[in-house]
Deep mutational scan, measured.
Amino acid sequence: NQASVVANQLIPINTALTLAMMRSEVVTPVGIPAEDIPRLVSMQVNRAVPLGTTLMPDMVKGYA
């Protein structure tokens, strides 16, 4: 099963992502692949992401 990127904390809108904000977890539906975590660092979210939410490509500016 593919691990996805999950929010490790509440991430406010327009926040630049850091490693501490993300974790890898096997979830359904599948979100951004966990191997993309290094690429996500310093990218901004375009909405508030609650703790435990799977990051989807449309939630991260410049990812999709």
Rank of each mutant, 00 (worst) to 15 (best):
G31N: 00
M21D: 07
N14V: 03
V60F: 04
V26P: 12
M59Y: 14
I13C: 04
P50L: 11
I11A: 01
N8W: 07
A34Y: 12
Q9W: 11
S4I: 02
S24N: 08
I11Y: 01
T18C: 03
L10N: 14
S4M: 03
L55I: 08
V5G: 02
P57Y: 11
M22W: 02
M43G: 04
A7D: 01
I13G: 12
T28K: 12
I32M: 04
G62F: 09
D58G: 09
L51K: 15
P33T: 14
M59K: 02
V45R: 00
I13N: 07
G62V: 04
I37Q: 07
L40A: 02
V26L: 10
T28G: 08
V45H: 00
Y63Q: 06
A34R: 05
I11T: 02
S42A: 06
A20Y: 14
A64H: 09
V41C: 03
V26W: 06
M59P: 01
P33D: 10
R23F: 06
T54F: 02
Q9A: 15
S42W: 10
N1M: 15
M21H: 05
Q9N: 11
A20N: 06
L10M: 14
Q2L: 11
V41Y: 05
M43N: 05
S24Y: 09
N8S: 08
Q2G: 15
T54A: 08
N14A: 04
V5K: 00
S24I: 08
N8Q: 08
P33I: 06
K61S: 14
V27S: 14
Q44G: 04
L55G: 00
T18N: 07
V6T: 08
V60Y: 01
L40K: 01
L19I: 12
L17R: 00
L17Q: 01
M43K: 06
L10I: 14
V49R: 04
K61W: 13
P38H: 12
A7H: 01
L51S: 10
G52Y: 05
A64N: 14
M59E: 03
T15E: 05
V5E: 00
P12S: 07
V26H: 11
T28A: 13
A20Q: 15
S24K: 15
G52F: 05
M22E: 01
I11D: 01
T53C: 03
I11W: 01
V5L: 04
T53I: 14
T53H: 14
D58F: 11
T53N: 07
P57N: 05
I11M: 06
P50A: 13
I32T: 02
P12H: 05
P38V: 07
V60N: 01
V5M: 02
A48S: 04
M22N: 01
V49D: 01
V49W: 02
R23K: 12
L55D: 01
A3Y: 14
M56I: 07
V41W: 04
V5F: 01
T28Q: 10
D36G: 11
N8R: 10
L40C: 02
A7C: 03
M43P: 00
S42R: 09
V5A: 14
I37H: 03
A64Q: 15
L51R: 05
P29H: 15
T53A: 12
L55H: 00
L10G: 15
V5H: 00
G52P: 01
V41T: 10
V45P: 03
K61R: 14
E35S: 15
Q44H: 11
A20W: 15
Y63I: 05
D58H: 09
Q44L: 10
L55V: 06
A20E: 12
R39K: 05
I32G: 01
L10P: 15
I13H: 14
I37R: 09
A34D: 15
M21S: 06
Q44V: 08
G52V: 01
M56T: 12
Y63T: 05
A3N: 13
T54I: 07
E25M: 15
T28V: 15
M22D: 01
